[in-house]
C-alpha cells in the first residue's frame, strides 16, 4: 500500500499579514514558511499508520505544487519521516489548478490513500482535497478526525455538528483531515535530518490548466474601535452595556 500526503506551504501562523504592489500581493518579506498545520498532522498520522502496518504500507510520499522555494519544506517533511517527495513545478494559481496538477502527478502511481488538510491557512479555501478527489473520480471524506486501516479499506471518524460518525470506505480514498487526526505534529530528529538529504525529491512539470479564479486584490479589515475597559467592580455596567448598547443579551 502507498500513502500520499498533499502539503501546502504557508506563512507561519503568527505572521503579520501585509500586502504590497497596491495590495495585490502578499508581502513575503521576513515571512517564515511552514508546512500547513493540518498537513503536518496528516503526515504524522500517515507515518503512524505505516509504522504499525507491519510492512503493509510500503511508503509515504509527500506532494506539493509550487516553486523551488518550497524545497526546504519538503526536506523537512522527509526529515519527519516521509520516504520521498514530489514537487510539481508550477505556480499554485488557484485551488482548481493545484488540484489539476496534483491529480496528474498522483495518477502516475496507484495510491491507496491520499491525505489533504481541511484548509490551507493562507487562502482558507478548503477546496483542493475535494477537487482532487473529483478529478481522480475517487471517493472523498471530509472533516476526518480519526483514521485507521480496516480489512476492506479504511475506518474513519467524521465530525458532524455536535457529534461524530464512524465510516468505512474502500481504497482508493481521499481523506480530508482536521483536528484529532493526530495528537501532536512530529518534529524532525537529527538522524531524520541527515537521512532526508539522501531521500528522493522528484521535480515534475505541471500540466496545461487554466485557473478558474483570479485574485484581484487584498484588504486588511479596518481596526476595531478600542476596547471599553471596565474595573472589576463594574460588572453591572457591563451587563447593562451588553443589554442596552450592544443589544446582545
Amino acid at each position: 500500500m502507498k500513502i500520499a500526503v498533499c502539503l501546502s506551504h504557508v506563512p507561519d501562523t503568527t505572521t503579520r499579514i501585509r500586502f504590497v504592489d497596491n495590495n495585490r500581493r502578499l508581502d513575503t518579506n521576513g515571512v517564515q514558511w511552514i508546512i500547513n498545520p493540518w498537513d503536518e498532522l496528516a503526515l504524522t498520522r500517515a507515518l503512524e499508520i505505516k509504522e504499525s502496518s507491519g510492512g503493509r504500507v510500503e511508503k509515504v510520499t509527500v506532494v506539493h505544487v509550487g516553486r523551488a522555494g518550497a524545497d526546504p519544506t519538503l526536506r523537512k517533511a522527509m526529515a519527519i519521516g516521509a520516504d520521498n517527495a514530489i514537487r510539481v513545478d508550477a505556480d499554485p494559481a488557484d485551488a482548481f489548478s493545484v488540484a489539476s496538477h496534483l491529480a496528474a502527478a498522483l495518477r502516475q502511481e496507484s495510491f491507496d490513500l491520499i491525505l489533504c488538510g481541511i484548509e490551507s491557512s493562507d487562502y482558507n479555501n478548503s477546496a483542493v482535497g475535494g477537487m482532487l478527489a473529483e478529478l481522480l473520480s475517487v471517493t472523498s471524506v471530509s472533516a476526518v478526525s480519526g483514521l485507521e486501516p480496516a480489512d476492506d479499506g479504511w475506518l474513519l471518524h467524521r465530525d458532524i455538528d455536535g457529534g461524530v460518525e464512524k465510516i468505512v470506505a474502500s481504497s482508493p480514498l481521499v481523506a480530508i483531515v482536521q483536528k484529532g487526526i493526530a495528537r501532536e505534529p512530529r518534529i524532525p530528529s537529527m538522524r531524520g535530518i541527515m537521512m532526508a538529504k539522501q531521500k528522493p525529491l522528484q521535480v515534475v512539470p505541471g500540466v496545461e490548466v487554466n485557473p478558474l479564479t483570479e485574485y484581484l486584490g487584498f484588504e486588511i479589515p479596518a481596526p476595531k474601535p478600542p476596547c471599553r475597559k471596565l474595573d472589576p467592580e463594574q460588572v453591572k455596567e457591563l451587563a447593562g452595556l451588553l443589554h442596552k448598547e450592544a443589544k446582545v443579551i
Binding site: 488540484a99 471530509s142 478558474l212
Partner: peptide
C-alpha cells in the same frame, strides 16, 4: 454554507462542473 457539509460538497461540485469556487 461554509460548514462541514458545504466544505465537503462544494469543491467536488466545482470540479465536476468546472465552475469557479468562491469559498468562505
Amino acid at each position: 454554507a461554509h460548514n462541514n457539509t458545504g466544505k465537503a460538497v462544494a469543491p467536488c461540485l466545482s470540479a465536476r462542473l468546472k465552475a469557479a469556487l468562491g469559498a468562505s
